[in-house]
Every structure is written in structure tokens, then in C-alpha cells.
Amino acid sequence: MIAQNIGFAIIAAVMIIAAVRVVTTSNVVHAALWLVVVLSGVAAQYILLAAEFVAVTQVLVYIGAVMVLFLFGTMLTRSRIGRDSGLNNTYWKLGIPVALVLFAAMAVALVNSFGDERMPTDDNIVSTQQVSDQIFGPYLLPFWALSFVLLAAVIGAIVLARKD
């Protein structure tokens, strides 16, 4: 238990620092690389939460595919690769109070609702087999719909980005 909490604290601190750097850095490529740190931290938290299949999917899809898309997007839109001062809005300071108020509201709600409730000890760990039974059983129709969404997104992206 102690080891889990220490691991959580270290990963959470790294994630929060990296997330703040994503939204404050003045270099688009650095923002993408900090985002990799955040996404790896999320995958590590999934493993702490005993969701190994979701963690592997997170690494494959987000760190593998989505990050390559972001770097290609940066390259093809010819954003400045180095430092760039024009990344923020004129009214970017407005975001700070909005984020703080939102966090305060959520923190109050969470502390009131869950207090110091503990995670159950590991007698009901969800296995990957159960997840697949669920996806290809009761959630089969959403799975089909999802494959059509992905197909439409692929075709749509090609049509949008095509020349002429």
C-alpha cells in the first residue's frame, strides 16, 4: 500500500508539472513532447488501477499514433519550430481564474462525496478477458458504431486534407 502511494505521488507530480508545461511553453514541439510525459503518466496510473489492457492501448494509440499526428500537424502547418511568442490569446489571463474556480468547485464536490473512502483491496480485479467479453457481448453494437466512426473519420480526414 505504501509503495503504491509513493508511486502515485511521484507520477502525479510529474504529470501535473508536464501538463502545466504543455499549456505554458512557447514552443509547439516542446508542448507535444511534454504531452508525451502526461500521457505516459496516465498509462502508469492505469497500471496502478489494475487496468493493464487500457494502459497498453493508451501507449499504442496516444503515444504512438496521436503524437505522430500532432508532430505532422506542426510540421505541415509550418508552425515555428523554435520559440514563438504568438501562441497565446490576448485575453489568456482570463483562463487562470476560470480554471481555479472550476477546480475549487470540483474539489469541494469530490471531497464531500468521497471523503477518505479507500479503493477496495485486490479481490475483484478486472481481467482483460472480462473486458473483451463485455465489448463483444453487451457492448457489441457501440463497437460496430465505433468502427464506422473511425472509417468516417479516416475518409473525412483524407477528403479534407486532399489537394484541390
Binding site: V23, S79, D84, N88, N89, W92, L94, G95, A99, L102
Partner: peptide
């Protein structure tokens, strides 16, 4: 949310 509000790119 802060990033969505603050960023222009």
C-alpha cells in the same frame, strides 16, 4: 480547460 481558453494556436 485553461489551455483551451488561453491558447491561440
Amino acid at each position: 480547460v485553461y489551455g483551451v481558453i488561453a491558447r491561440k494556436n
